[in-house]
Simulated assay, not measured.
Amino acid sequence: MADLASLQSGPLRDLPYRVAWRARGVHAGAHRGTSSGAGGLFRDLATLLEAPDPRRLDLRASLRDPFEQLYVRRFERSTAITIYALIDVSASMGFVGNMRKLEVAAAICAALSFSARRIGDRFGVIGCDREIVPELHLPAARARAGAVVAALRTFRPTRRGAGGLVDAAAQIAGRRKLVLLISDFQIAADELAAVFEALAAHDTVPIQLIDSAEAASLPRFGLLPLADLETGRRRLVVLRPSLHAAWQRERAEHEALLASLAARYARPPFRIVDRLDWDRLAAHLMEARG
């Protein structure tokens, strides 16, 4: 199976990320904030009455003022943010062909946990099928996410639906967060739209896991036994050109819906096909959007 050994072993990776928006909060961190404080980038000048801190008196600006007011320099305070990984663990995520989707999701969570802890950010994980899965729920903290990462690696998806992602979005409502939405996005159109709408207030990065063995081209003719991972139903299908074309059209329409929802509510989707390319993922996470 592609890249499985490298995902499970070796030192923890540092996965950089960046946000374009200014974070609100009281904890010092590595991101541009909305408040002023000691150190950081120069923000602006203010009168001594507005910012009573004579230690940062700017004599040149004060001497230039015809009204003889005293000015002090204000600096932008670097602030910590909160990151969440919301992971679809519905039945379709259990398909194993050229990759184990939850193994890739677990590796991403391990790298994010390491990176967030290093720079002072808080990191949390919520795994969902039709509900939030308790053993895959880690509230955001500055501690390592080792236990939930291990649980993700051994979890076997069996239940259909991803409605729990909407419940997860409600749980993390409030101050803006960086959210990685990890899924194969084989989700019903109405559920998919509801998930993106629920996360509209956050900086959301959709990460689509694609197993090429699952999405391989179907023959145009013949008998094909099919198993629906979401419903558990099995049936024998007689393939013909019209049915083949309908499936291809439905797949293209679903991909177009995902792209449209991401354009409206989130960053562009990042697609992982069979193998996780860490450099490409890091570059994508550094392409911050406001």
Rank of each mutant, 00 (worst) to 15 (best):
D184C: 07
A51C: 12
I83L: 15
L209P: 02
R73L: 01
R100A: 13
P134A: 14
E287K: 13
T34R: 03
A105L: 01
G232M: 10
T158P: 00
A188Y: 01
I81R: 01
P66R: 06
A193F: 00
F42T: 08
R160S: 10
A145L: 11
A282H: 09
V179M: 08
A227R: 15
Q171D: 08
A259P: 01
A38L: 14
S90T: 11
R55I: 02
S6I: 11
D228I: 14
D274M: 14
A141Q: 13
I119Y: 02
L285Y: 04
T34G: 03
R267I: 04
V149I: 05
A141G: 13
A169Y: 01
R118D: 08
L45S: 06
Q208R: 15
I81E: 04
L4D: 11
V238M: 13
S62V: 11
L180T: 03
E68I: 06
E131T: 15
R156C: 00
Y71C: 07
A143N: 09
L15Y: 02
G120Q: 01
R289P: 06
E214Y: 11
R100L: 13
Y71I: 08
V179T: 04
F155Q: 05
A61G: 12
E197F: 04
C109D: 02
T154P: 00
A150P: 00
R43F: 09
S212T: 15
A173P: 03
L224I: 14
L45K: 09
P268V: 08
P66T: 10
A162I: 01
L48T: 09
Y71P: 02
H137Q: 14
L178A: 04
G164I: 05
V72E: 04
A91P: 03
F67I: 07
D279A: 15
D203E: 11
A106D: 05
R289K: 14
G164V: 03
V166Q: 07
G97A: 09
